[in-house]
Amino acid sequence: MHVKHLLLIAILGLTAACSSKEVVDENLSEAQLYQQAQDNLDSRSYSSAIARLKALESRYPFGRYAEQAQLELIYAYYKNAEPEAARAAAERFIRLHPQHANVDYAYYLKGLASFDQDRGLLARFLPLDMTKRDPGAARDSYNEFAQLTSRYPNSRYAPDAKQRMIYLRNLLAAYEVHVGHYYLKRQAYVAAANRGRYVVENFQETPAVGDGLAIMVEAYQRLTLDDLAASSLETLQLNYPEHPSLASGSFQPRVSEADERNWLSRTALGFLESSDPLPPGQTRASQDVIKQYEDAAEAIPSELLEGVQQEQPAKRSWFSRLTFGLFD
């Protein structure tokens, strides 16, 4: 089914691309252009509607339908799956007509365009987890709906905008939780603790707060910051006793410890990790070269290796190979 859907999307995209080059009759009056645009919108021919609305605005910039055409152009772009164009048209309308009676509609459509920007056509047919994708458009949509609700609290679009803001806030919080889990897997425990604390402090009343506390507990435990881990665990147990990390009666880390590196090494992501001292005259780079040479030597087929050994009876040292025999 997914392949059929993708083929349908490709066909619709090609059709839309072809129809967007439609030529509008230059002899049409302002009223005729506007009526044809309305007919296109009613029949969901959004590309044709866009062409006529743009022609109407350019030919009759001070006509009786100019402002309405600019407003309906935002809607046509949005319905034609052109979010960037819809947002640009909305910003233009808000800038030109800040006191317009329907400017709240422009704010609303601008938020809707960002809301659907990441979802797109593919997300409607493929099982994509929106909480794991880049939240840039979601954050923009939240801010744009927030502008609408703060500037026009009595707008007819404010209730729907508030509901979408709740969804977007939950999505942004869940994204931060995914980032925190990523840091836990990479043993970047300071960064993970900061992400968990960010969720707790900035996304109250979202389902992700419990996950943020769990990330803090696990990160502080890995860092052996026992007091912080204990206080975070107490908060988690008090407010989210049903959290999955507490299912067994005690806290269960989500990510198992991969090794037994020291606290400083884990905090610095291993960059400051110490190792055995090197022999005199060797560096880490030379050791890497030797290791690569050894791996390549092991990969040589045995029959070729036997021939080489017959031609070269004398075995050279690693230092001789590295220096190409200059010091033999």
Rank of each mutant, 00 (worst) to 15 (best):
D118Q: 10
Y142A: 09
A146Q: 08
A146S: 08
D160S: 06
N154T: 05
A146H: 14
A161C: 03
Q147I: 06
Q163Y: 13
R169W: 12
A161S: 11
P127H: 08
L122F: 07
G136T: 15
S155Q: 01
M130N: 00
R133G: 09
D134Y: 09
R164A: 02
G136I: 11
T149F: 07
A123E: 13
G120H: 13
A158T: 07
A161F: 01
R119P: 01
G111F: 11
M165F: 04
Y142G: 01
S150H: 12
N154Y: 06
L122K: 03
T149V: 09
K132I: 11
Q147D: 14
Y152S: 03
R119E: 04
G136L: 14
R156T: 15
R156S: 15
R164M: 07
M165T: 01
R124N: 14
L168Y: 01
P153M: 06
L112M: 12
F115L: 09
F125V: 15
L126C: 02
L148V: 02
L121H: 07
M165C: 04
L168P: 00
A113G: 05
T131D: 13
D160K: 14
S141P: 02
R151E: 06
A138N: 09
A113F: 11
R119F: 10
Q147P: 00
S114C: 05
L128H: 02
Q163N: 11
L128N: 02
N143M: 08
D118W: 12
F145S: 06
A137L: 03
G120C: 06
G120Y: 10
T149M: 02
R139V: 04
R133A: 08
S155Y: 02
Q117Y: 09
R156D: 15
Q117C: 00
A123F: 07
S114E: 06
L126E: 14
S150Y: 03
E144P: 00
D116P: 00
M130Y: 10
F125M: 15
D160C: 01
S114F: 06
R164C: 05
A161P: 05
L122Q: 14
P135H: 01
P135A: 01
Q163R: 12
T149H: 04
R164E: 04
Y157F: 08
R151L: 11
S114D: 05
D140H: 04
M165P: 01
G120E: 11
A161T: 04
Q163D: 14
G111D: 10
T131R: 06
A137M: 09
L112T: 05
R124S: 15
A158V: 02
G120R: 14
D160H: 14
A158H: 04
A137D: 12
A113M: 10
L121R: 15
L126K: 10
M130H: 00
D134Q: 04
G111E: 10
L128P: 00
A123D: 11
